[in-house]
Design a protein around this nucleic acid. Sequence first.
RNA 1: CGGGCUGUAGCGCAGUUUGGCAGCGCACCUGCUUUGGGAGCAGGGGGUCGCCGGUUCAAAUCCGGCCAGCCCGACCA
Length: 569
Amino acid sequence: MRWSQAFIPTLRDDPAEAEAVSHRLLVRAAFIRQLMAGVYTLLPLAYRSRRKIQQVIEQEIDAIGGQEFLFPSLHPAEIWRKSGRLDIMGEEMFRLFDRKSGEVVLGMTHEEIFTTIATEITSYKQLPQLWYQIHTKFRDEPRPKSGLLRVREFTMKDSYSFDLDQEGLDKAFDDHYHAYSRIFARIGLDAIPVEASSGAMGGSGSVEFMVRAEAGEDLVAHCSNCGYAANVERAMSKVAPIVDEVGPDGPERFATPGVRTIEDLVDFPGGAEASRQIKTLVYVLDGEPTLVLLRGDHPLQEQKLQDRTGAVDLRPAHPDEIAELLGADAGSLGAVGVLGVRIVADEALRGRTNMTTGANENEFHLRGVSIERDIDVGDWLDLREVEAGETCIDCDESIEVFRAIECGHIFKLGTKYSEPLGAVVLDEHGQTRPIYMGSYGIGLERNLAAVVETHYDEKGIAWPVTVAPYEAVVTVLKLDDTTVAAAERIYEDLGAAGIDVLIDDRDERPGVKFNDAELIGIPYRVTVGPRGLAEGIVEINHRASGTTDEVSVTEAVLHLVARIERERL
RNA sequence: CGGGCUGUAGCGCAGUUUGGCAGCGCACCUGCUUUGGGAGCAGGGGGUCGCCGGUUCAAAUCCGGCCAGCCCGACCA
């Protein structure tokens, strides 16, 4: 490609609205343009890079036996109703009506649609099957943000495995785990597999592939000693045991004027330190008010509450609901003596005695509370969110918590979709059995952005060769006949050697060309100028390291081809 | 959905307080000079000032309504 003919509208200034590094650089370096919130046009550079990611994915999924399909984006709402997810997905699903007033939705994932085809699998002899597609997903995100990191229309590689039993599913899951690890490694992402919540997907287990980045929206708890890694939506840690005094025979009520928060009570004379308080939160789980108890200094992890209780719909109770239920306002709530209301408590509270909590009367608290004696706990659950510095659940080192981008997610679905949608086979005994399914997703544009988030410097992007829109650029420093002829020769030879190469033949000053090449992040630059040619050399500059090698004109192409091929993975 | 901020040329912004010619830088076009790290000079093109309505002799500017976008939170495979 000739730069003079290419549409690469780089910007001199940072776009004002872009905050995340990848958003800022992808706009400035002429990869993307926004059409509306969460919807982006991929310009030719981005499309080239995305295609390279796509090729890596196809190679690796094909390698584990994947068969590529193309499924529609328009789905009848009916099929989503059948699986029960039409309501669960709520407003995140784009909905429309066709001319016959038929209700139609845009696909946000494809379990249901793949499963309808899978109903044509009728015998265990046809299993296992591994099907996938690379296609557009539509999700009406409440808050699209950070450029390509969270959008409303994007490309996903989604695969679905179909097996006779759990053992088969475990293998398909394992195959994907390794394929994903290879995919991320090849595109230059240091992705950490972490235990994850299955959320709205359901199923028995899931692993997310997380890339550490400031712009990430997830939090990962990680132990560098033993390698334990989990999304904080699931992560566990050890709590140092607390030795309580036995305390009085029963709770003692005392006045706490002005106390509204855990902190207030810590400072209040006769109060208690946070770890000796019981925090009482009121949630509404599928319409049922529920008291959620945690140690005073432990934050609730809402996803855990949802996962552990199986609630579909979960929200904090409104102030008036709280007052009606307990007769007091937030700040003076407690579970002592509360009957007929579901109470769940965090494991860290088990066995604790002589604690302090609200009395369900404004500005009064109770001290001397022994949890198991005084509170009718229905379920003991792991509900608290781990924090950096706590002790690893698997060893005794302390864990760190960092922000990360979810670059891939693999799920064991079991029979969650095959049963309601009737995807069954006859086994060798002639018995009808639902197919065991797994589903596995990678968001292509998000991965593109994640690569930028982890490969940039003050000059711009520094793509790995595997994802770069062009592997090399030949920069022509002066448009005189000799220089142009030498540069064209190198450009032709690189192209003939199978290198994705761009020649910067624009009538611009060298500084402009250097800056643009560095901004868009082309891994290698061959600088061809009269000064070097006079000595028979050209320069080969490596974007990521900034190093420059002088190579003779005759050896330049071979030298560069060897280096690029080494990095292609 | 709640809070904060912003909509003026392709990009970055000033002008809005106090109503009175729609401006600046970059980018773009032409010419000349220049040419190893975002050139200089001269000339030029490009605008429903987010949209609708109101006030006024006159609205980018004041008033009302709406829309869009960004950030924080809620939410979210």
